[in-house]
Design a protein around this nucleic acid. Structure first.
Lengths: 114, 114
DNA sequence: GACTGATATAATGACATAGTTATATGGTTG
DNA sequence: CAACCATATAACTATGTCATTATATCAGTC
């Protein structure tokens, strides 16, 4: 399962959100999702691992999971070429605002905020 | 189907790649993927549309599809909080290189290129 | 070395997805 | 308005995904 498929599941995205703050054991992650059984979480973690989105290391009897940027960097790279699209839309918003009654300062503020 | 699920399919990502260059009719998009039947492509386009990733307009008897940044901007926003992860890794690479035999100029070049 | 705690794998079932063929819709043209 | 072209929807099938229960693995402890 590739990174895009792995990210399609909301639970897995939430797991990454938790890991983005700090690394956690499999058990901690599992307890964070009462709606998911222990084997269910284990499977999600496996998917994330095989997609290159997380890494594991063993410590005592625990498995400690943490974010691995490789996979996400790949997704980010794919998205890069689209980023200009909303930048473009902001630009045309700016042009529109510049043409209207707003001052340029106000336009810039508007742009910065959205 | 949300934007993340829509992006999980490689064909749909390729469709977006085509549309990132210029808008196209459903037929043009279909012909771009000989491995996908006409109804198959129509379905993919529907998924992309309902996920907010593309928009359609009618012109003559054609349906013209184009990128709609809303959906992708949402995905990008989710990814934003991870971007610092590889930036961080680049920073530690830089620190490592600065500490090694490389000149600072070489380190900066390395950093900029990856 | 048996027992326990932490985690992974196996087996299975319900449901979703993507592809296929057949058919419908809707605008365009003679 | 009949025939045609572009595209969408329906019905169906194959395959995949996710969740569940039961079981295995494996390290640490008594």
């Amino acid at each position: 399962m590739d990174a895009f498929e792995a990210l399609a599941d909301p639970t897995r995205r939430q797991v990454l959100d938790l890991l983005s703050r700090r690394e956690r054991t499999a058990g901690e992650l599992g307890r964070g999702f009462p709606s998911v059984s222990q084997p269910g979480m284990s499977r999600h973690l496996r998917v994330l691992r095989e997609a290159g989105l997380v890494r594991v290391r063993r410590e005592r009897s625990y498995r400690i999971y943490s974010i691995r940027s490789d996979g996400l960097a790949g997704v980010d790279a794919w998205m890069r070429k689209y980023r200009e699209f909303w930048k473009q839309e902001l630009d045309s918003l700016e042009r529109y605002l510049d043409g209207s009654g707003l001052s340029t300062a106000e336009s810039r503020r508007t742009r910065r905020h959205r």
